[in-house]
Structures are given as structure tokens and as C-alpha cells.
């Protein structure tokens, strides 16, 4: 019975440690964001970091769907685009307050996700992947062809700047903090979901969908819910993107962007909130560093994806942690 005490004492600690770890990770995250925001003066770097934040939001949402519900979406850029175009048209063309437009953008994306997800998620296997692939392309064609509203392939000009009272987000620094504030909120939100009854059910689908159903989880509904949630995060990212660059065009929301989002999640490590951050950072920074090689961008991404899948199938986050673990264990 000595063993018993040992084990329970040990496991009790695990729970406490994981809570402490979360708090520590959050603290590091907030400090890092604050330091970057305060120290970095160069507008180019601030801009890059803001893009990292926007991409992290995209990866976070998709990660919930891919990493936890085990469903691939190959058209997620569509929700990103719906968020961006909704706010562009409402605030740019119709003069609606961007904040009201944000609500419409999120509601619109969630509604579309519901309609697209309802039939596709009922089917097993990779139907969602196929369904969303087609869906993403159709949405992109609409952005391109409905030129009276969207500006067509030449893009939409005249998206207003964000303001909150006397606070203007014209300033790159303010925008940086806005985006990363939203990212932090989204991280907390994802963690809350994952540690809840809903999150447990979600993780159970990942471990075994058959058993999950058999113990009473409505897996179809849950997948639909998380699909809608990831669409909402995509729309928020699109909103932030549109008001940041103030000019949007269909290419920013095409198939390649969807693939890039999937790559971020896979590289960072599926089923890991911090992995989404890492994946988004890498895939935002790399093209900047490979400036002269724009044509080879996709090849480089493909190579990285292949290498990660071969050598670190759990993703870079897990892989690096494992290497660190080995290194620490060395005598």
C-alpha cells in the first residue's frame, strides 16, 4: 500500500503543476508581448509581428478542429475572407461602425460554417476536407466575380481605420497590442474550452470516435460546434487583417492560404495551443526572410512540412520538447 500513497501524491502534484505551468506560460506570453510592443520601434518589425498575431488566430481555430476534433478543413481561408470582406463592405461601403461589422462578420462566418458543416460533418472520413476544399474555392470565386460589391480581382479599397473612442489604431503599436490582446483572449478561450466537459468530449473524439459515440457524445454536433468556433476565430482574424492593411483582394484568401494555415497547425504540432503560435510565427517569418525567392515559397513550405512529418510527426513543439528532454537527461 506504500505504492498507493506514492502514486496519488504524485498524480496530485501533476494537477497542481499543470495549473502552475499554465499560469507561468501565460505570464511569459504576456511579458513577451509587452516587451516586444514597447521595445520594438521599427514599423516593419511591428508589422510582421502583427501579422504573426493574425496568423496565430487562424492557426488556433484550425488547431481546435484538426488537432482535437480530428477534422481537416482545406477551405478555412474562406472564413478569413468572409470576415475581411464583411467588415470591408459594411464599414467601407455602407459606413457601418467597424465594431458592429465585426459582430456581423463573426455571425456570418458562423452561419456559413453551420450550413457547410451540417452535411459534410455527418459523413465520416475526409468528406469535410473535400467539402471545405470546394467551399473555399466557391467563396473565392464569389470574392473575385461579385465585383460590384467586393471590387473583384482588383481588390477592395477604402477600408476605414479602427477607432475606439479617442484611441486610434492608426498607430502601428496600438494595432500590435490590439491584435495580441485578441490572441491572448483566444488562447484563454481555447484553454477554457479544452479543460471543460465540451473539451474532454472533443479530445475523446480524437482518441477514438467510435468509443466516444458509444459513451454518449454526440460527435456530429460537437464537430459542427467546433467547426463554427474555428470559423468565428477565422472571421475575427479576417476583420483584424482588413482594418490593418486597409486593402484586400481575393488572393489573400485563396486555396494557398488555406494550405498555409493547415501547414502552420501541422508544423506547430496539432493539439497544442502554443504550437499554433510557433507554427504561425514560422510561416509568417519564412516568406519575409525568403523575400527574393517568392516563387519557391511553396517548395520551401512543402519541404519543411515533409521534414517535420518525417522527423517530428508530433509537430515542432513536441519535437523540440523531446529533444530538450533527451538533452537534459544526458549524464
Amino acid at each position: 500500500m506504500k505504492d498507493t500513497e506514492n502514486v496519488t501524491g504524485y498524480s496530485g502534484n501533476i494537477v497542481i503543476i499543470s495549473n502552475r505551468r499554465d499560469i507561468a506560460a501565460n505570464a511569459i506570453f504576456v511579458t513577451a508581448v509587452l516587451m516586444c510592443g514597447i521595445a520594438v520601434q521599427n514599423t516593419y518589425y511591428l508589422q510582421i509581428m502583427t501579422f504573426i498575431g493574425i496568423n496565430t488566430l487562424l492557426a488556433l481555430g484550425l488547431n481546435m478542429l484538426m488537432g482535437y476534433a480530428g477534422q481537416v478543413s482545406l477551405g478555412h481561408a474562406a472564413f478569413y475572407g468572409i470576415g475581411a470582406y464583411t467588415t470591408a463592405v459594411l464599414s467601407g461601403t455602407f459606413g457601418v461602425s467597424p465594431w458592429a461589422a465585426l459582430v456581423c462578420a463573426v455571425a456570418g462566418a458562423v452561419l456559413v460554417a453551420f450550413v457547410v458543416g451540417l452535411p459534410t460533418l455527418r459523413l465520416s472520413g475526409y468528406y469535410l476536407g473535400m467539402g471545405t476544399l470546394g467551399f473555399g474555392m466557391i467563396v473565392n470565386i464569389i470574392f473575385r466575380e461579385w465585383s460590384s460589391v467586393t471590387g473583384g480581382s482588383s481588390g477592395f479599397v477604402g477600408i476605414p481605420m479602427l477607432e475606439a473612442g479617442s484611441l486610434s489604431f492608426m498607430d502601428g503599436k496600438n494595432y500590435f497590442f490590439l491584435v495580441w490582446g485578441v490572441v491572448f483572449g483566444a488562447i484563454l478561450l481555447c484553454r477554457r474550452i479544452l479543460s471543460s466537459r465540451m473539451g474532454r468530449a472533443l479530445r475523446s473524439i480524437h482518441d477514438g470516435e467510435k468509443a466516444s459515440m458509444a459513451v454518449g457524445v454526440n460527435t456530429h454536433f460537437l464537430k459542427l460546434q467546433i467547426f463554427m468556433f474555428s470559423a468565428a476565430l477565422g472571421a475575427v482574424a479576417g476583420f483584424l487583417y482588413a482594418h490593418f492593411v486597409m486593402f484586400i483582394s481575393p488572393e489573400s484568401f485563396g486555396f494557398m492560404v488555406s494550405v498555409k494555415m493547415v501547414t502552420m497547425v501541422v508544423i506547430g504540432g496539432m493539439a497544442s495551443v502554443w504550437g499554433a503560435l510557433l507554427g504561425a510565427s514560422l510561416l509568417t517569418l519564412l516568406p519575409e526572410m525568403l523575400h527574393g525567392f517568392a516563387e519557391y515559397e511553396m517548395i520551401v513550405f512543402g519541404l519543411i512540412l515533409m521534414l517535420v512529418m518525417i522527423f517530428m510527426p508530433q509537430g515542432l513543439t513536441r519535437g523540440l520538447l523531446d529533444i530538450y528532454g533527451h538533452w537534459k537527461k544526458r549524464p
Partner: peptide, 13 residues
């Protein structure tokens, strides 16, 4: 215990 409990998305949030 999933079927005997009821908190969902909004509960988690």
C-alpha cells in the same frame, strides 16, 4: 458522465 452533465460551449467560456 457526458450524458448526465450539461454544460456546453457557453458554460465552458
Amino acid at each position: 458522465m457526458h450524458v448526465r452533465t450539461r454544460s456546453g460551449f457557453w458554460g465552458a467560456v
